[in-house]
């Protein structure tokens, strides 16, 4: 057995933790030393359905922006400016509250299949 690193679990990452870090690099017991680091923890891969924006229907009311529980809707200058797919968990609340039905929830599997099909054609 390799000798144990005496500095085990002494990591004090300020930039947040990533899944490529080993047990020595991670902070002891999962302690967090910096507030606001939820931003560095990407939860987008939990999603099974993806919100897709229909630009023509969108009236930029930003009701979706207000309702999104994960702050995963970007807005710039008071206008809708896309989804944060690194954090969006695909709950579908945005699509549900949209008064003009400008957000469609598409299965991630379907998106993957389409992507595969496109790659095969090429």
């Amino acid at each position: 057995m390799t000798p144990f690193n005496r500095n085990f679990g002494q990591g004090r990452s300020r930039e947040g933790i990533t899944p490529d870090m080993n047990w020595r690099e991670l902070t002891k017991a999962g302690n967090i030393y910096e507030p606001g680091n939820a931003n560095t923890y990407e939860t987008g891969d939990w999603r099974t359905i993806r919100p897709m924006w229909n630009e023509e229907r969108c009236i930029h009311c930003l009701i979706c922006w207000r309702y999104c529980p994960d702050a995963s809707i970007f807005s710039t200058d008071g206008k809708f400016d896309g989804f944060d797919y690194k954090h969006c968990k695909g709950c579908g609340i945005c699509a549900n509250v949209c008064p003009t039905h400008a957000i469609d929830m598409i299965s991630e599997d379907e998106i993957d299949e389409q992507k595969e099909a496109r790659e095969n054609e090429e």
Partner: peptide
């Protein structure tokens, strides 16, 4: 991450 934190306890 859980697995690594358990291993820290083993260490």
């Amino acid at each position: 991450y859980y697995f690594e934190h358990k291993y820290q306890q083993v260490a």
